[in-house]
Design a protein around this nucleic acid. Structure first.
Lengths: 366, 366
DNA sequence: TTGAAAGCGCTAACAT
DNA sequence: ATGTTAGCGCTTTCAA
């Protein structure tokens, strides 16, 4: 606004052609195929355009005609703004932006808040394809995306038959971590996890809810932990799992508090994200529990903050996830089978994991 | 991809209408104005749509017809991916995303790398308006945006007559900071600044280049510093200014090194961003210079890392910048005069600024 | 090198 | 409550 002159679109390609006494084709060519007309004529066209205030071909009309929007849509489960708070999400965004930039296409962030059932934003997005990042399998926005006749690539979750996907091998990654802890001697463990469904459930998670989780990544990690600790003789139904709807350091801290209040005998807190783990570290500090001497804490993701905190965690290449997803989407080569890219993860053993204190140590000191 | 069935768009609103034996209007209404037709008919329409695989009205065609794209474009001077690295830029993005979300419109990130002269991405973006964030006044992408007949809001820079703008009062803000330093007794100062033009110039900046800078924010800050220190009797042409094209902590460090190597007598390093200042702190540490005992360092922006480092800086509300810009753009009330929103800044005096060592102290210790 | 014709798929008056 | 009529602004065969 603020420039009334530029507000009212008057000139169109047709009016410009009329003014010049040439056909619309010629004007179109002046913009899109300079080699298809004489330089002299082209100059005249462009100059008249300037004089008439014609801003060049309307992008929407062009998109309709060419059936190319020149943009890819991004759907995420969280508030758009949240994506800029979570370092892992930022990494994915950065990678995706990189891929888009290389291809010269725009990145259209779809305004789909989790609460809002309003799916219209998905329908309204003029894009050539979607990247879906980490949404629950019953998300209505996801359904709306899948209904659109454009290619789609999913990052992390959900897993949908026949749809391209990019992500780590969550089960294998966290199994490695679990084996590390089992190897250290931990048997009394507790888990902090991110939301398992679209409904808010801040608290302990019955096994049934774990089983029916709509966030595949969380579900897979819990299952893998159950399997790994099961092998070590730990009955999974005895293992406390605390869920948090919001994914912040504070929520991690409060979850840890809830866990340790009810299960003080826990020797290791396994978190399904670094953010939650950072919160757990804060809570341990608050309680005066030394880490790793008195409590082991582990994360997942390998964000920069985790490195700084010396957190034992599983690193996954978040930037690559975004970039690979973008490349997959933009490489529109025909292919029958869904493509799946599995990214390498790396167990990073740092300073927050150590053998548990034995009972003797607990009562009589080390 | 990976779902061949969904790839070929066959059904259109018209074909659906034909199949049903109703008019196109009716089908359109079934989607857009449910109250305009009987529930029974609507059900039939929607069901037939499902059967035929009609995915609902094409967003591009709809946009062409309604002259609403349902998205705002964002143009930034840096690589898109860079925006996700700079905390200040992330803040702006988050705020803008917030505003978009509230309005239910998409956020279209335009792939405009600084190097690339290719302006086509701006022309191709199907958006209802642009937010331009911190670009040089001679940026060709900016020119392309201004040529488009849609409202535009600029954040920070450049200043363009008649165009809405959101930003802090850079001159006032940094003048406050300068007065703080002058008050402490600093007279031998040096400056680290961000790029002043689209050409790369990593090194000292002649006054002439300062004067002709294409980045208005940097220019304003330098001018205000010149004025403030001029009042204190400091000849600005004697003040070394080091420019860096890239905006990273490492570049801040190398700039500080360059400055201190050539001007070891400097008692304060004024940085036009926190990122650069964090680099300067790192370099001071590397040289064994105590801050603030032996060297004062100041920043600008007030990012979280700066707080953590206890940096003396000027805080500006970056999230608000983005949000206000979005609100301004989306509040399309007619108005003749350009709107300007000036955001409050706050001088945050922390632990990296102190009086300079006197010469006596320098030679003989405190 | 230029032009004529034919839509791309949809919505919004304005009827009925 | 449903249909008729007119485009939105552009690109693209195909012909001249």
């Amino acid at each position: 606004m603020g420039r009334p002159m530029r507000m009212r679109r008057q000139a169109t390609l047709a009016s410009l052609a009329a003014e010049l006494g040439v056909s619309r084709t010629t004007v179109s060519n002046a913009y899109n195929r300079p080699d298809q007309l004489s330089p002299e004529l082209r100059r005249r066209v462009l100059e008249t355009a300037r004089r008439l205030g014609y801003p060049g071909p309307d992008p929407v009309a062009r998109s309709l005609r060419t059936r190319k929007a020149g943009a890819v849509g991004l759907l995420l489960t969280e508030n758009l703004s949240y994506a800029f708070r979570d370092p892992a999400a930022i990494g994915v965004l950065e990678g995706l932006a990189l891929a888009c930039e290389d291809a010269g296409v725009g990145l259209h962030l779809v305004p789909a808040s989790p609460g809002r059932e309003d799916v219209a934003a998905v329908h309204r997005a003029g894009v050539d394809g979607f990247v879906v990042y980490s949404v629950p399998d019953d998300d209505p926005h996801l359904a709306a995306v899948m209904a659109r006749p454009v290619p789609t690539v999913i990052i992390d979750q959900p897993r949908i038959e026949g749809v391209d996907r990019v992500g780590p091998d969550d089960a294998a990654a966290i199994t490695q971590l679990a084996e590390h802890l089992v190897g250290l001697g931990h048997r009394k463990v507790g888990v902090l996890c991110m939301r398992l469904g679209r409904d808010r459930n801040d608290g302990f998670v019955p096994v049934e809810r774990q089983r029916s989780a709509h966030f595949h990544v969380q579900k897979t990690r819990l299952e893998a932990l159950a399997a790994a600790f099961g092998k070590a003789g730990v009955e999974w139904s005895d293992v406390p799992v605390v869920e948090r709807f919001e994914h912040t350091v504070d929520d991690g801290a409060s979850a840890a508090r809830q866990l340790l209040d009810a299960y003080p005998q826990v020797t290791a807190v396994i978190c399904t994200s670094d953010i939650l783990a950072l919160g757990a570290l804060a809570e341990a500090d608050r309680r005066g529990l030394r880490v790793p001497g008195e409590l082991t804490v582990t994360g997942f993701d390998g964000i920069a903050e985790a490195d700084r905190a010396g957190l034992t965690t599983v690193h996954q290449p978040v930037l690559e996830k975004g970039r690979e997803a973008g490349k997959l989407l933009l490489a529109s080569a025909d292919h029958v089978n869904a493509r799946v890219i599995t990214l390498a993860t790396e167990l990073r053993i740092r300073g927050t994991s150590a053998p548990p204190r034995t009972m003797e140590e607990h009562w009589f000191g080390p």
